[in-house]
């Protein structure tokens, strides 16, 4: 088995895929805790559908660099969704449901009418569930992904304490003069960037899983924000690597394999968390 893996690793595209997968897993898990606890997960879900719609526009327009369209549309939607979400919870939820289902329908329609591709359902399927494009990455894709990841990680580290304060208790933070509105905006933008980047790996339907599962798993075991954040990053990277290796060896789809490993890790953490607290 290791021989086989070694053999695969000789191909540059396999190495690129692994690097990109690790970077994406790292970035997406960083914000998981905040997303879960701030009840932002619904925004994450809505955004991934918007990103799908944007992707459809980009592929219909036959752009070579789809990011040029997908990134701005998703970021703008993130800002808008955050606005509506804050006014009132119920109205916000409805708005998000409308936008995400709308984007999904619109995107599929566009692809159906205008697509010149002979393999339409294949295209749609790979946008939704992650694609083999993971294995057709070029060096430039890897570099773009690395740059985005370093920016995300840098922003997260720089604002770590602010993000903690805003997530734990927004009204306190704002009462003592932290600019919570700006930080919420920043969070929404990072989430959008992460989602667009992560679409490559797991497709738009499963991004939320990649973001949320590691955080939920870590919360079963650890009890400080720092420990939860560190553990969820490690877990996410490990799951991504394991998932990719399995998918290379067994020929399963990359995205769903990674998410399946994440789910398994979540179950494992839940059980061990329960055991630990029972022993105490």
């Amino acid at each position: 088995m290791f021989d086989k893996l070694w053999e695969y690793l000789q191909f540059p595209f396999v190495r690129y895929a692994l690097i990109v997968g690790i970077l994406i897993a790292l970035c997406s898990s960083l914000l998981g805790v905040t997303l879960v606890l701030k009840r932002f997960s619904f925004i994450g879900d809505g955004l991934s559908h918007v990103a799908f719609g944007a992707m459809a526009i980009a592929s219909v327009a036959n752009l070579t660099n789809q990011m040029i369209i997908v990134m701005p549309i998703t970021v703008i939607s993130a800002v808008l969704l955050l606005r509506t979400g804050q006014n009132s919870r119920i109205k916000g939820d409805a708005a998000i449901a409308m936008i995400s289902v709308g984007a999904l329908a619109f995107g599929y329609l566009l692809m159906n009418i205008f697509s010149t591709s002979s393999n339409l359902s294949g295209d749609v399927c790979s946008t939704l569930f992650g694609s083999t494009s993971m294995l057709t990455l070029r060096l430039s894709d890897v570099i773009v992904c690395a740059v985005i990841s370093f920016i995300v990680i840098g922003v997260f580290l720089f604002f770590y304490n602010k993000i903690f304060a805003v997530t734990f208790d927004e009204s306190f933070a704002s009462a003592v003069g932290t600019r919570t509105k700006s930080y919420n905006l920043l969070l929404a933008i990072i989430i959008a960037v992460v989602i667009v980047t992560a679409m490559k790996l797991v497709g738009s339907l499963m991004i939320s899983a990649l973001i949320i599962f590691p955080a939920l798993s870590a919360m079963r075991l650890f009890r400080s924000f720092k420990a939860v954040t560190v553990f969820s990053v490690i877990l996410s990277v490990v799951c991504a690597v394991v998932g990719m290796v399995i998918s290379i060896l067994a020929g399963t789809p990359v995205g769903s394999t990674i998410v399946a490993v994440d789910v398994a890790a979540f179950l494992l953490c839940t059980v061990s968390g329960a055991v630990v607290s029972a022993v105490k």
Binding site: V33, L37, K38, R39, F168, D169, V176, R223, S224, A227
Partner: peptide, 18 residues
């Protein structure tokens, strides 16, 4: 939200220095 937040006492008290 605060009630199920994973945060240590020290982390929370420090956040007052924000």
């Amino acid at each position: 939200v605060q009630k199920d937040f994973p945060a240590s006492v020290r982390e929370i008290v420090l956040s007052g220095c924000q």
